[in-house]
Design a protein around this nucleic acid. Sequence first.
DNA 1: AGCTGTATTCGGTAGCTCCGAACAACCTTT
DNA 2: AAAGGTTGTTCGGAGCTACCGAATACAGCT
Lengths: 253, 253
Amino acid sequence: MKNDRKRTVKSADNLFGVLETVHELDGAGATTVADHLGIAKSTAHDHLSTLVEHEYLIKDGSTYRVGLKCLHFGVQAKNRIELADVARPSLEQMADETGEIAWLMVEEYGKGVYLEKAMGDRAVQPYGELGKRVPLQNIASGKAILAHLPDDRVREIAVTHPPTPRTEKTITDVDELLEELATVRERGYALNDGETFEGFRAVGSPIVSDGTVLGSIAVSGPENRFRGDRFTKEIPEIVTGAANAIELSLASR
Amino acid sequence: MKNDRKRTVKSADNLFGVLETVHELDGAGATTVADHLGIAKSTAHDHLSTLVEHEYLIKDGSTYRVGLKCLHFGVQAKNRIELADVARPSLEQMADETGEIAWLMVEEYGKGVYLEKAMGDRAVQPYGELGKRVPLQNIASGKAILAHLPDDRVREIAVTHPPTPRTEKTITDVDELLEELATVRERGYALNDGETFEGFRAVGSPIVSDGTVLGSIAVSGPENRFRGDRFTKEIPEIVTGAANAIELSLASR
DNA sequence: AGCTGTATTCGGTAGCTCCGAACAACCTTT
DNA sequence: AAAGGTTGTTCGGAGCTACCGAATACAGCT
């Protein structure tokens, strides 16, 4: 009934809950955290103190903030991903050629993680941030990745991480999604037409090696610079070209 | 006697212990972790499972590795530090002018954290990595920071985080350290003459604003390129110049 | 001074953590 | 292919602790 859950350390729920709350709110006090998690103030306080003692949080007056300790963990994980190194020059080239922002994304636990970015000279940044974890289904780079995962995994992800419908264009139906993914697979790139933010578009392409998808790259920008041939031909060509270049560099090592 | 420790969540010791062990060993299994921490295999296993459930670790066959979840936490903490943004151009300029590596460091919990780096065209990287936490006393950037902290705080740090003597030049005596810090304060920059690695030198300068030290910048490289006037005049001038530029940009916002 | 929101302390018990020992899975070795 | 070694994993239970609630201590208002 309720105890089919694995044998885990229960206090970790609260411990990480507190840490993640402080992160989410970008700094918070004991009461705020307690309310946010529905636990007693005193419990929140115990956990906050614990996290300070272990140097994961910093106490700034009476608000707590996340410290830098996690940075090294994340960087280590990122450094292990060969793709991040290899993709860097291609990302910069894409940013240069288009003037927009270029992103590198990988999948982890059914979510997309932004690993690298390169800013073009006209780049605006309305969404996304290094390390941010986002649903895969309603963004170009996410769909590029999903297109190369088995159907049942896609369904699983769609169920466990339903996207918050942000605009009326957000895809919510799984079958509709799978259909679009087939198209993506066929033509080699994915589009985001205002599904995340109104007036915001993107083109993404997967990085595939030995039949498995390692991640994806994408270029995004405002709709007025992403229309007509530029949206359906020029930029897709740049992005798929860059993806191919990355795949080649990966193969030759 | 032993219970003057604050009221904290005890299982966090093991939980973070396990996480940090996996990080330190760059991937490990249950037995390795258990031995490393001196706890029961089963306990290590429970905690590893817990960390996987919370998506902080990734299970790769039978070894566990740190995942990307922490990346966002660290990036948030870093983004909050205005200095990181402001220093970037100056770091790149230093790297260009010297051809070596330029670093930005801040202090947290008595340790130095590498926040940014810029690579010159001859740069070699023998030490340090983004987010890495190192003792402050035996590196140029660390001493630059310490020089602007109150003496008793320096003593406290020296006691709680004694540096592992890596070469015979490593300073271990606190009074000797304080004396050197006075010199640093006076001339405006700190030196590292093979104290961390044999044959490796560095020049560092603090970033001070309103009388408090926010962090430091440094340039490091092999001894054969860091000698004579270049080590005692040229590079110090570049570094202190860059530090001043950063302090000015910080003041005008 | 009073009031209203915070953070923080602390006693006590329901419930969890941790160990040890058994089991399982996977290898080398013979 | 069986034996032996190494690892990961499961599970019962004793002892400790995480959690709540109530009390207390601040801090900033009016």
